[in-house]
């Protein structure tokens, strides 16, 4: 981006206020779509530097942070998966696709459960900052090919590695066939994204429900995290009487899978699963239902109308 003037707005979506939107109806008339997105990641021992972001705070090898991440792939993932199995949740895996090569054993356990895989880049220590557009397209191709080769699945979703982005990123994701992005946090309902081609959806993911933000940034205690998940759910469930909502719980097995944290999480998702109006689903299924129910087109029209009205005033 060097040399280009900075913009004041992403320009990827139009404003649409929460009241009086077209109604979203989820399959089976469920009030809320709840999906869980485990970030199954591989952080490199000796990654190359990127001028915009240095992977590790300490010089390579930062063995404490590297090993802390590795905990998720040796121990934490099994606890997380067992808790999700008990509550009847499939995962939508936010996958550093190189993990297919490093730990196919983990991929197999997820695939055997019918979990979805979406892409979270190649490694969480490689960012798209300073890449040119062709280089970023190469990462997208790599992700499609790797996930297809190892799981037979066609990628539908994308979360940029470490949430690094360029202005063209959404255009080239959509052009490649990606159906939903998790990189934007502006809504509790799926929303159309303005891209050059295709019909890309911004899927509600979450910062506040994301264990990495909860534990590494906000420094919340595990039991309080459990309470936060339940309160977030209660409110969105109530509002789902009027129009379908989405709740996502993004996870990192190296954090939520720690022994002192797993029970509070497990209890919270069992609480959610105990409600009749919950659709326990995946990102891909939410995107499909959003299109099939006509919500994508209705929201697009509502945004266009709102925008036209604003210009007319």
């Amino acid at each position: 981006m060097a040399g280009e003037p900075m913009k004041s707005d992403l320009g990827l979506y139009d404003y649409l206020p929460w009241p009086n939107r077209p109604k979203i109806v989820w399959p089976g008339n469920k009030k809320i779509a709840v999906w869980i997105a485990p970030n199954i990641e591989f952080y490199e021992y000796n990654p190359p530097n990127n001028p915009t972001r240095t992977p590790w705070a300490r010089p390579n090898p930062d063995v404490l942070q590297y090993s802390h991440r590795d905990y998720g792939n040796r121990a934490g993932w099994q606890r997380m998966m067992a808790a999700m199995d008990r509550a009847g949740f499939r995962g939508s895996v936010s996958l550093n696709v190189a993990l297919c090569d490093h730990h196919p054993e983990i991929i197999k356990a997820c695939a055997d459960r019918g979990w979805e895989f979406f892409s979270h880049g190649i490694y969480n220590t490689r960012y798209v900052y300073n890449l040119d557009i062709e280089q970023e397209r190469e990462i997208i191709r790599d992700a499609f090919d790797t996930v297809h080769k190892h799981t037979g699945q066609e990628l539908a979703g994308w979360l940029s590695p470490a949430l690094s982005n360029n202005f063209w990123t959404m255009d080239i994701l959509s052009e490649a066939g990606i159906q939903y992005t998790c990189d934007m946090f502006h809504d509790d309902q799926p929303m159309p994204v303005k891209v050059k081609s295709g019909k890309l959806i911004s899927m509600p993911y979450s910062l506040e429900m994301n264990d990495v933000i909860v534990y590494n940034t906000q420094k919340v205690t595990p039991r309080h995290y459990g309470e936060m998940i339940k309160r977030q759910f209660d409110q969105l469930y109530k509002e789902g009487d009027e129009s379908g909502t989405v709740m996502c719980i993004p996870l990192h097995p190296y954090l939520v899978g720690q022994p002192h944290r797993i029970d509070a999480f497990a209890e919270a998702i069992e609480y959610i699963a105990g409600h009749d109006g919950v659709w326990q689903t995946t990102g891909r299924e939410i995107a499909a239902a959003y299109h099939a129910s006509g919500a994508y087109d209705a929201m697009s029209a509502a945004m266009a109308a709102h925008n036209a009205g604003k210009e007319a005033r």
């Binding site: 040399g3 021992y45 000796n46 040796r74 490093h102 054993e105 890449l131 190469e138």
Partner: peptide
Amino acid sequence: MSMPDDYLKYPERHHGMDQDRYPWSDLFQ
């Protein structure tokens, strides 16, 4: 702007760990 081609090369992308100190292992197995 672009990154050197090496930035998209992954010499340690293979089965197991990306260093040779220990093999991967599942605590529960």
